Amino acid sequence: MRSTKPQLLRSLFGMFLDDEPVRLATLAEAVAQGDLKLTRYHAHSLKGAAATMGMEPLRDACRELEFAAKAEPADVAALSPALGRLVVEAEAAFKAMRQELTQL
């Protein structure tokens, strides 16, 4: 994650850390309510943000949840394990970013 432009990294990581935990909480709520449309939307949005930041494990976990929410017929029970993996990857990404920010 090292860059020759620490100010840019501070800005990008700061925005990600401001926005994505909120999105993650909203996503978890959508899963809890069985709202497949919102689950797909937020998983897709977080997947794009993770991909932009080069966080492949988080991107992959988002993809897994997004596809589970698109399954036909819908299997709401399959969403919880996918969300669990996504939360683990998101927390790891948030931790890595916070650690990186302390070193810039």
Rank of each mutant, 00 (worst) to 15 (best):
M1T: 03
R2W: 09
S3V: 11
S3L: 12
S3D: 09
Q7L: 01
L8P: 10
S11Y: 04
F13Y: 09
M15Y: 00
M15Q: 08
M15D: 07
F16H: 03
V22R: 14
A25D: 15
A28D: 12
A30E: 05
A32I: 01
G34I: 12
L38I: 06
T39G: 13
T39I: 12
Y41N: 15
Y41Q: 15
H42T: 07
H42G: 06
H44G: 14
L46G: 05
K47H: 04
T52A: 04
G54M: 07
E56T: 14
P57D: 09
R59T: 09
D60K: 15
R63G: 05
E66K: 06
E66I: 09
E66M: 05
F67N: 08
F67K: 07
A68C: 14
A71G: 02
D75W: 11
D75C: 04
V76W: 01
V76M: 11
A78K: 13
A78T: 11
A78I: 14
S80Q: 10
S80C: 05
A82F: 12
R85K: 13
R85C: 03
L86R: 08
V87A: 04
V88I: 10
V88Y: 09
A92V: 04
A96S: 02
Q99Y: 02
Q103H: 01
Q103E: 04
L104W: 00
